[in-house]
Amino acid sequence: MRHIVITGTSSGIGYATVKYLIDRGFYVFGCVRTEKDAAELRKAYPQQFSPLVFDLIDEEGIRTSVKEVEQHLDGQPLFGLVNNAAAVVSGPIAHVSKEDMFYQFEVNTFGPLNLCQAYFPLLRGGEGQKPGRIVNVTSLSGEIAMPFLGPYSASKRALMSMNHTLRREFYPYGVDVIEVVPGRVKTGIIEKLNKVESQYAGSDFEEPMQRRMETAMEMREFGLEPEVISGAIHTALTVKNPKYRYVKPDLYFKGYRLPTMLPQRMIDRILGKQMRLLPSFLRSK
């Protein structure tokens, strides 16, 4: 049996991917923060799913989870590690606190790196065993930085960079590292954003921020089904010669090609107009 460890399985891409992989015969360890988050999956798939309960900030918890998996594997190598879990910290970058920045990177960057380190011995396997693969789920935001998603975009960009160095440093061990880059996905991430808005009331960015939330809410029905990303993760884990990364934009041309191709200063102005970030908006106040 092929075993996969995947983080952030309580909802969204993680949840969909657990089902996707189980349907294709994998055994899945799903990382969640509380026992409750795993109850449903555990009930649905008693034979092919076990939860690992830890927080990505908790190094000790990560180490304990490795021991659990090692015991279960009983000498078999780990087929794959999927770093999917992420948090979203948003806000005007001129006002985001250092604590928020730390939290964002602890979850989205340091956590996944720590997991790569901790699970490395299991992925590498023993003599004569085929080494496993790592799949890091980043985001198109790392490629195209949208206003008010500064901390999130930066943490994902850092993970994109790490994907290259991990792949190059793990190469002699045969452990491949592949990136999956989703565009907008229909998950609950937008609802998570809404809470922060009030924090920045009174700043010059209040109105642009509101504007941004409105467009985000209008767009919430648009986006990829999480299963599309699950498919990309499955491909990355199983094909013989995987690409180094799989980009899955929600809108290929408008959401990916155009913004990465056009002069960035032009994108700045388009976004500035859309989100009321042009200097004239402040002057007219």
């Binding site: 005007p92 970058i93 206003p147 850092a158 960035q264 500035g272």
Partner: peptide
């Protein structure tokens, strides 16, 4: 390298948001 990549992204965000102040 990862910090410089993170700053790449933050520079984009800063540039876009601080446009308000030119």
């Amino acid at each position: 390298a990862a910090t410089k990549s993170a700053m790449h992204s933050l520079c984009d965000t800063l540039r876009r948001e601080l446009m308000l102040y030119e």
